[in-house]
């Protein structure tokens, strides 16, 4: 799986990106998410990468479920419990009360499955593909070279920036700074201060990198046909098979969803399609 053509991987990301928007049921989204996790496992990431992914997924899931549970404003909605009553002085009168809604929790879970699926497939692509192949794939997919180069370089520098950020945080801790303390202003100040060296170093690095690439003939004005490539990409039968399967699934889902939309809005109904309507409502 990891030897797939990078174009296939990018197209898979796009298929899943559309699919998770089209699907509404938690079960089908869970299947998509499990497939994306399967891809991650196949790319044999390090434990550190696993840990990173788990942290991202947990934060995203927590953030989305928590925010949707509180701010869900569609109807019907069922109050599970009240965090701040409407009769609490000041906050209660301003907010009208803060409550957790059952439908909000479910909606947050669905949103987090959508987000986490695309996140996992993005990680799969980055962790299982050489940057040069990714760059070539972007170019072959007719992304402008300067944009493809920019995306590729950003991905390349993420680990460096992460290591540098870790050093900044370590330096602050070694100088006795506590990131977790009772005074929120101190926390905010510490976090903002830690951005200063990271930002400054990255601006310096970006300047050096810009000079280095321009000194070697790179120009944002380069157009695809002026540039040559030492290596080229070649699709294998399995790539074509996967793209065909992905396209077919996407077309079927979109078609079924469109037909269900017509039924639900009274535009078109056929008696013999009842099974399909049930399938879309319950499964998709």
């Amino acid at each position: 799986m990891i030897n797939l053509d990078p174009r296939t991987k990018i197209l898979m990301l796009m298929f899943f990106g559309v699919l998770v928007i089209m699907l509404d049921s938690a079960a089908s989204l869970l299947v998509c998410f499990l497939i994306s996790i399967g891809l991650i496992v196949l790319s044999s990431p390090s434990w550190r990468q696993y840990r990173l992914l788990v942290v991202f997924i947990l934060f995203a899931t927590w953030g989305l479920i928590y925010s949707q549970a509180i701010f869900y404003n569609a109807s019907p909605r069922t109050v599970l419990f009240t965090l701040v009553g409407h009769d609490v002085p000041i906050i209660g009168s301003i907010t009208g009360g803060v409550r957790v809604y059952r439908e909000g929790l479910l909606h947050g879970a669905i949103q987090s499955l959508r987000f986490n699926t695309t996140l996992a497939i993005g990680c799969f692509i980055v962790w299982s593909t050489q940057p040069r192949d990714l760059l070539l794939a972007f170019v072959k997919l007719r992304v402008p070279y300067s944009l493809a180069f920019m995306v590729n370089t950003s991905l390349h520098y993420i680990p460096l920036i992460a290591a540098e950020s870790a050093n900044v945080i370590r330096s602050q801790r070694l100088r006795g700074f506590r990131y977790l303390q009772f005074n929120p202003f101190q926390i905010i100040r510490g976090v903002l201060n830690s951005f200063r060296p990271i930002l400054t170093n990255n601006m310096r690095r970006a300047t050096h990198l810009g000079e280095a690439v321009e000194s070697r003939g790179f120009s944002p004005d380069i157009v695809g046909n002026q540039r040559t490539y030492l290596k080229s990409l070649k699709m294998q039968p399995r790539d074509i098979l996967l793209i065909a399967a992905g396209t077919a699934i996407l077309v079927v889902v979109i078609t079924l969803k469109a037909m269900y939309f017509c039924y639900a809005n009274g535009i078109f109904y056929a008696f013999w399609l009842r099974g399909m309507y049930t399938f879309v409502r319950e499964i998709l």
Partner: peptide, 29 residues
């Protein structure tokens, strides 16, 4: 040539890094 080589590399493989300038100039593979 810059002071710190890490500041001027943007590929992960040596061959790609070496080819980069020539590719920009449109030299045949």
């Amino acid at each position: 040539l810059f002071q710190n080589p890490d500041d001027q590399f943007f590929c992960t493989v040596v061959e790609d890094e070496l080819a980069f300038g020539l590719e920009n100039l449109g030299i045949p593979p």
